[in-house]
Deep mutational scan, measured.
Amino acid sequence: SAVVMEEGSPGEVPVLVEPPGLEDVEAALGMDRRTDAYSRSSSVSSQEEKSLHAEELVGRGIPIERVVSSEGGRPSVDLSFQPSQPLSKSSSSPELQTLQDILGDPGDKADVGRLSPEVKARSQSGTLDGESAAWSASGEDSRGQPEGPLPSSSPRSPSGLRPRGYTISDSAPSRRGKRVERDALKSRATASNAEKVPGINPSFVFLQLYHSPFFGDESNKPILLPNESQSFERSVQLLDQIPSYDTHKIAVLYVGEGQSNSELAILSNEHGSYRYTEFLTGLGRLIELKDCQPDKVYLGGLDVCGEDGQFTYCWHDDIMQAVFHIATLMPTKDVDKHRCDKKRHLGNDFVSIVYNDSGEDFKLGTIKGQFNFVHVIVTPLDYECNLVSLQCRKDMEGLVDTSVAKIVSDRNLPFVARQMALHANMASQVHHSRSNPTDIYPSKWIARLRHIKRLRQRICEEAAYSNPSLPLVHPPSHSKAPAQTPAEPTPGYEVGQRKRLISSVEDFTEFV
């Protein structure tokens, strides 16, 4: 048969007729292969192709491409040299491709048809291009793949890379869960390890502090508590009631339409708007009261037996805890006409967050109470924005700035309102402590230090009264110190430094 060459192609190359033996071998191979691939376009007849790359030819070592076609129900084999250009295909004639002069020997084609199974398996396991790669995943090629499931790999992101949580363990979102698992493993320790309690022994800490320079003076030496005195035992138990972190309780009120001037209507609300609910979820963490331990979680007086509701929101960081007394989460009882059960919590909070959804101005004093010092007013606006402002009593104007209003988005509203309420509550605590000038409020841990110092002074006084020969370590507060001759004046800087060093040991009130 003659071949018409394309323009620009090399000279004529004689194409030899395939021997009958080659056709029989390739026909047997075509019957084993699956003929249901995917359909081509209507211009080209339905056909199945599979590209198999052999590394070497037997005796020649030339890479070839073998295409199996099922045109007219008769499979045909096409061998081509890759750099050459194939002729145009037609549905009426068999596929013809040019070969190099080196394939002119018909014996070479017979060798190609009689490829060993080793070469076929190696060509099938190679990388296939384009559409033949999808075909190689079918059941027909499963014989050339190794048996057994593939090893499982770690989760992959859409980009093909490992997620960040699997790369950096410290930033993994499941870090707290692993800590819980470690605690569970520790709890399952053997009885021999049960006595080993991690941490620092208080006796060891005391020993280090006792021999430090801070205890060089007799006034700073630790003293032993009497065991037989019940009054001192009660004082030590009272110390446990003062937490070592700051605590805040903040009221949250929802004002519906037409309720801006009605205290009873505001306290009777059992739910609010959708934006109000989203605002609550951002204030803190939802907790169930019956599962809380009052000595570990500050509840601000809420009952854990269901008297004040089942849930509330709280927030904490390293040095403070805040609980929100939310009116809509507290039960509304029919027998309580004046809502006294709610007001006994909300009316005693220094700061209230008022979500004013009424469309009218909310005035300070609508919720009557002796300790309502500051109101954080949240007014929802259009386009997911809110107006946040402050209202306070006249005696609080020096501590709280009420002249600045803020426009905040719904997303950042819980954070801004919480921070403003916490700052206002700190100012309210300082303002409330002014009624007792001898006990200015600095912080909870300073209050613990003052309680310890008062307890020490009482013990020293009782020891001096029981044994008059012992001198008083600290003179009583009601006694007057003996007159001392004025010492020589020293520079102001040295006096300030000495006073600062003494105050650092005794108390921190002056620095606050």
Rank of each mutant, 00 (worst) to 15 (best):
V430G: 02
L472N: 15
Q230N: 08
Y245C: 07
L455H: 09
H375F: 15
F508Q: 15
A322C: 14
F362N: 02
S358I: 01
R344T: 10
E462F: 06
T438F: 06
P380I: 00
Q370H: 13
L283P: 00
I319G: 05
I502D: 15
L346C: 05
P222F: 06
T247I: 09
L239K: 09
L399P: 03
E461T: 12
I446Y: 05
I353M: 02
D318S: 08
S358W: 00
A424K: 01
E233L: 12
K249C: 14
N425S: 14
F373V: 10
E384C: 09
C314K: 08
V252P: 00
P468R: 10
R339W: 13
L289Q: 15
K337H: 13
S443A: 08
E360Q: 10
A464F: 09
M420C: 06
A427F: 14
C385M: 05
Q429R: 10
T379A: 05
T509Y: 05
P222M: 06
S466D: 10
I407Y: 08
M420L: 05
Y355A: 00
V505N: 14
S352M: 10
I502R: 11
P226M: 14
M426S: 01
P475Q: 14
T438A: 10
K444Q: 08
S268D: 07
P486L: 11
G282T: 02
E257Q: 09
L267K: 04
P442K: 08
H271T: 10
E494P: 13
Q370G: 15
S409H: 05
G301I: 04
P226C: 15
L225S: 13
S219E: 15
D357Q: 03
K480D: 15
Q419H: 07
P331G: 05
T509I: 04
H316W: 13
N261R: 12
K480F: 09
H316E: 15
V304A: 10
N425E: 04
P294N: 13
F350K: 04
G272M: 02
C292D: 15
Y313F: 10
K221H: 13
N436S: 08
V416P: 00
D341W: 09
S273Y: 01
L283A: 00
I502V: 11
Y274W: 15
P243V: 06
K499S: 09
I377R: 01
I446K: 11
E360L: 06
R275L: 01
S260N: 09
L413R: 00
T485F: 10
I287S: 08
I250R: 01
N356H: 01
P489A: 14
I353N: 00
V323M: 06
G284F: 04
L449Q: 13
Y493R: 15
E233R: 13
A464N: 09
C305G: 14
K480G: 15
D357N: 09
D240N: 07
L302P: 12
V297N: 15
D336H: 12
E397W: 04
T379S: 06
F415M: 05
A424T: 04
H316P: 05
R458V: 15
T490F: 12
R458Q: 15
S273L: 01
Q391R: 07
L399G: 03
V236S: 07
E307S: 14
S469D: 15
S219D: 15
L289I: 14
A464I: 11
A463V: 11
T509F: 05
Y313E: 04
V495Y: 09
D308L: 09
E228N: 08
E461N: 10
S466H: 12
S466F: 11
I319M: 15
R344F: 10
A427Q: 04
E488T: 10
G496W: 06
F373G: 05
K333Y: 15
G258D: 04
G300N: 15
E488A: 13
A483W: 08
R456E: 15
P486N: 09
P243M: 04
A265V: 02
N348P: 05
R498S: 14
P491R: 11
I319C: 11
G272L: 01
T379V: 07
I242M: 15
L472S: 15
G301K: 07
V304E: 09
R393G: 11
L413H: 00
N269F: 00
L283W: 01
C340D: 15
D401G: 09
Q419K: 01
Q310I: 11
A265N: 05
K343W: 10
G300K: 13
S389N: 07
A251Q: 06
N269P: 02
G492S: 07
Y274L: 08
L299W: 14
A483F: 08
R339C: 15
I353Y: 00
L264F: 09
R498N: 14
H432L: 08
D336G: 14
T490C: 14
I242A: 05
G365W: 04
R285F: 14
G256Q: 03
F373W: 15
I223F: 09
Q457T: 11
S433C: 09
R411S: 09
F311S: 05
V297D: 15
D308N: 10
S504V: 07
E510A: 10
